[in-house]
């Protein structure tokens, strides 16, 4: 322990003031803290980035192996029966569709479990909220980080697809952005769900009743055009479906005006989920 005579803090202390004599530091009056501050967001993200430094290999592994497994299982397996779907090689169809799956897995699941553990078990969120960081900033930072990470990992299936012979159009450069936008919405959904459930075991209900159907009825492995009308309408409410379609249109180079509407739908989804996640997390953290 530093004894009082040691340079514990005075002298080179950050804001350079003496609390005893100056109860209202000038710096504070002029630098009023805003509702959402970039410093707070990067501070919270830095924690994730440092942790990621230790775990990126697992992330890369999971995001690469998973699409390869799907490509082998569906692309090569089904590929023997089905050669072309919607005018594309089935294997290309699957590798582009798997982007959405990879995004879902790397964002929603991480957000659900991660935020639950940090809130309930590690009390990390409690520690962060005792500093000048509010729930909006905390949630935004966590979701944004997962979105960026999910956007990059989620694009790996395209690279795998290329290795299997996919020929990408120049618009493929938008795929990571589409993946990030989708990832933002799903990371926020995961955070929202985590703030609503009673225990960590409840996540299995969510996984089987919500995420599995979303992932299956997104047009990842088979086109939805053959499905009954009700399903096709439901699919239009599925953000993953919009992600799948956008990624395909970008990679195959047939972007059209409906894609703008799909982007709009994903933005709306992201905004709603963010708002819900902030609101519910606040209720859970600030009693």
């Amino acid at each position: 322990m530093a004894t009082p005579s040691e340079p514990a803090r005075r002298g080179d202390e950050p804001p350079g003031r003496d609390p005893a004599r100056d109860p209202s530091p000038p710096g504070e009056a002029s630098r009023r803290l805003r509702r959402i501050e970039w410093d707070a967001i990067t501070g919270v993200m830095m924690r994730e980035v440092i942790n990621f430094g230790a775990a990126w290999k697992q992330g890369v592994f999971a995001s690469t192996v998973q699409p390869v497994v799907y490509l082998l299982a569906f692309g090569l397996g089904f590929g023997q029966l089905v050669h072309r779907v919607d005018g594309h090689d089935y294997i290309d169809y699957v590798s582009t569709g798997t982007v959405a799956t990879a995004v879902l897995f790397s964002t929603a699941f991480n957000a659900m479990f991660g935020s639950f553990v940090k809130r309930e078990f590690q009390r990390t969120y409690d520690a962060i909220l005792s500093t000048p960081v509010d729930v909006e900033e905390l949630v935004t930072a966590e979701v944004l980080w997962l979105a960026v990470r999910g956007g990059l990992f989620g694009s790996v299936p395209i690279l795998v697809g290329i290795a299997f012979g996919l020929d990408p159009a120049w618009t493929t450069i938008f795929v990571p952005l589409v993946a990030m936008l989708t990832g933002f919405g799903f990371a926020a959904s995961g955070t929202l769900i985590s703030a609503v459930v009673g225990s960590i075991d409840d996540f299995s209900y969510v996984t089987s009743a919500l995420f599995t159907p979303l992932f299956l009825v997104a047009g990842t492995f088979f086109p939805l055009t053959g499905l009954p009308l009700a399903f096709r309408i439901l699919a239009e409410l599925n953000p993953l479906h919009h992600c799948v379609e956008l990624v395909r249109d970008c990679t195959f180079g047939d972007v059209d005006p409906t894609d703008l509407a799909r982007v709009g739908a994903l933005v709306l989804f992201a905004a709603l989920m963010w708002w819900g996640a902030v609101d519910r997390t606040r209720r859970r953290l600030i009693a």
Binding site: M1, A2, T3, P4, A8, D18, A20
Partner: peptide, 16 residues
């Protein structure tokens, strides 16, 4: 004891 000395030091320097 060390911590007490530190806390006391902070107080002496003006921290509430």
């Amino acid at each position: 004891q060390e911590l007490w000395a530190m806390i006391d030091g902070l107080r002496t320097e003006g921290t509430s």
